[in-house]
Write a protein that binds this DNA or RNA. Sequence first.
DNA 1: TTGTAGGCGTTATCAA
DNA 2: TTGATAACGCCTACAA
Lengths: 361, 361
Amino acid sequence: MVPGGGRVMRTTIEDVAREAGVSIATVSRYINGPPGVVAAGTAAKLRAVVDRLGYVPNPAARTLRTGRSRLIGVILSNIAHPYWSTVLSGVEEACQRRGYSVIVSSAGDSAEVENRYLGVFLDQRVDGILLNPANADPATVARWATLSCPVITLDRTLPGLPFGLVAMDNELGARLAVEHLVELGHRRIGFLSWHVANLSNRLERLRGYQDSLAAAGLATDPSLTRFVADGWSDGVQQTLDLLHQAERPTAIVSAASTLNLQVLAGVKQAGLRVPAEISVVGYDESPWDSLLDPPLTTVATPAHQLGVRAADRLCAVIEGENEPGGETRLRPHLIVRQSTTPPRLLATASGGRSGRSVSVR
Amino acid sequence: MVPGGGRVMRTTIEDVAREAGVSIATVSRYINGPPGVVAAGTAAKLRAVVDRLGYVPNPAARTLRTGRSRLIGVILSNIAHPYWSTVLSGVEEACQRRGYSVIVSSAGDSAEVENRYLGVFLDQRVDGILLNPANADPATVARWATLSCPVITLDRTLPGLPFGLVAMDNELGARLAVEHLVELGHRRIGFLSWHVANLSNRLERLRGYQDSLAAAGLATDPSLTRFVADGWSDGVQQTLDLLHQAERPTAIVSAASTLNLQVLAGVKQAGLRVPAEISVVGYDESPWDSLLDPPLTTVATPAHQLGVRAADRLCAVIEGENEPGGETRLRPHLIVRQSTTPPRLLATASGGRSGRSVSVR
DNA sequence: TTGTAGGCGTTATCAA
DNA sequence: TTGATAACGCCTACAA
């Protein structure tokens, strides 16, 4: 049987060689070599033939021969989430620019699924991997450690592994939120985070919160920091708990985009109005933040840019232009909308909310 | 130079053959053939060796030989948009299940970019393509027509081409919206669509609107149907125009997820309250619809499911289980929230909004 | 500057 | 039931 089954036969390097009256080696050199390796006249002739025949090298043959596929594997926790789909669009844009194709997968924050995808990608001989790692157990770490292709992790580190990192400046993000609130006059500021679980990005935001409180001369009351378990209900519950304690906070910082709505729901259930009775700062910019009532003040992170930078770095490593390690940090900025205002005490004294509806972008 | 550069050499079919004391042909048969082609004893031995060595066939070599890559190309208008990222997650899920990998691209609704990606995908020898086609000029259509790999279009047809289609039932979607409003007592119902531009999905929604008006015995007043030009401002403007005419509608149907917010903005600019003074029905379910003020009544479309079905059909075609043509339609359903209510006249008579906050899901 | 030739890892034909 | 072997299309060391 003819290999290739019913598929149309594409033109090969041999067709070009025959048509141009040269050897296939010359064609290959013309295609891949630096300009000048083939004589000017030959090159001109080849250019014409390649154009006319529409020749494109067969990537499978090329991969087989060179061991490089020009494929990049991306493993994200959830491609349907706005944050990650934005990151992905950045990755795709950068890879396209550099001539790589992107294979995607959605691992749902499960180390096991992650591992399965890793296998698929390695089997496909991807040239590099972009990974937003789930919480890593030792077995997984061991597996990742033996990888022979470059990996760059997104958002978080994989502790103990020498991979490059492209992430947000999380300490800065938390600090921006806290400083904004402190400036407004808040003294008791709650902080809601997913269970830290040794994940670097969560640790950093927590540290940013604690450090900036300290810098402002405020004590950290442990009861103001809450860690939420996976799922929808616990975030709401923790927010309620936070608000039901004797001396309740006048503001809350949500430390993750996926917690913003839980915090807001908790505040609503507690019967408090935002921002009159409690200020709320969200994390990450979701497309609906400006549509909420009130529009949410939030720490905006450059997700698209993260994707671009990560892909660029990975391609550079693949092409030997760059060392694999090291970290790139992207700076978030604060978007002040209407969910934050001076705390009631001051608000009353100074005439209330009126001055706070300015939108800084 | 050794091919494969610094990459670790993976175990090949030859390693397995040597280790098991058989020929590579036997190994290949064991790997690919139907069970039973190799003797039971040999199979057992091979299973053990394959396991121990962790052998996985090199996809490049396989592709080179068979002409099949187990790669599927997906061209979407915008992977960062919630609708499309949800579709993509469905595609990815189904492909993963069937052992295919997904290459993504975001073409930004430009036929030119679409074409470039098409080239990239063909060069990569994808086994099939999933495409949400932009508005096609004849040249593009001609190019698509000559394709040798199966294509399934998403959401819209590419007129004149025999590709399979997986799309929503758009007529039904528009009908659900109109019937809901008619039931509430509305008689003048506006309809806002992007310029139809010969795109099948837009035409179908328009027809659904017109037909269901007719079925309800209502005349179609052309001034109630508005077509919006690309961009942000025109949708707002058209909504204003619609509302400023002498006998203004009591309800508006937005015919595209990307128009929902423009309609809402226009209504706001016109100084009308939703739903007291005007009812609004949106299209597609965006994650923020339930967070809007008021929460938006909307025609929800099964985006994830669309991706799953499209990928499944494409894989089936690739594997010869299925004919390439034909269409699959997915049924939307209406989610009634609080942006729709009986028109003022009736509302006053019957006690107003109170009864309408039931959420049907 | 160009050509010859070997081999990358598979699958599939043919013969045994 | 198995083995030997010829491609698949390309890149590159080596020779000319």
